[in-house]
Amino acid sequence: MLVIKDLYAKVEGKDILKGINLTVNAGEVHAIMGPNGSGKSTLANVLAGHTNFEVTHGTATFNGKDIFEMSADVRAKEGLFLSFQYPVEIPGVSMVNFLKTAVNEHRKYRNQKELSAGDFLKLMREKKEMVQIDSQLTNRSVNEGFSGGEKKKNEIFQMAMLEPTLAILDETDSGLDIDALRIVSNGVNMLKNKNNATILVTHYQRLLDYIVPDFVHVLYEGRIVKSAGKELAIELEEKGYDWIKKEVEG
């Protein structure tokens, strides 16, 4: 589904990613862990198409198509979804209008008829129940005045609405209390099936108690330095990242 080969990227002139190789297949859950500043969020943003990041080398294909040839909105419509680490507040843009536009842009891209207002509201109700988002939130402007937990839940709600084939969750767990974490994880687990894939970008092992990964990768200084099964996450939780750093540098 996603094949990244020897990817280099920089931000504001500084090299952050230095040769990433990663293959994600349908039905898989990958966790990308690593110390602060290792390039985890950069990788997520590069894949989603943020223009602050410049790809200097390497390729990434999504279902066989070169994603660097696509603008961010096209990547989204191709089925790639980024759950933001810090979802931005957009005063004046209502949740309903935003989601309706987004859903219908996806439908148009797939040559499907746009949803009527009634059908859209019905879909929204279903998904809201599914991810247990407070129904008041959709009456407000996008993320405006939302608490940290509400913002993260809202990301998962949008994911439920758009049904991506590849979801990249960037530090979705950070700053969440245990109840919110459970709700968010339940949402992600519910949306998971054999045709889609998930990349969890996280600093902590805690999230992986709720969403069990098939693969765990450690990102350090812009490269994946270790890949293993879910047991690696437990090891990292116990021993921290220092032993990996030593292994790499030694």
């Binding site: 198409g49 961010a72 989204a76 979802p87 957009i90 935003f98 987004a102 842009e105 996806h106």
Partner: peptide, 25 residues
């Protein structure tokens, strides 16, 4: 706001439409 623009684009809304949404807001 570039971050707001990227947020809308990352949800499948093309740049022109996203700009209009932000201006209208």
């Amino acid at each position: 706001n570039d971050e707001a623009l990227f947020y809308l684009q990352a949800r499948g809304i093309n740049e022109k439409e996203a700009r209009l949404m932000l201006m209208f807001a």
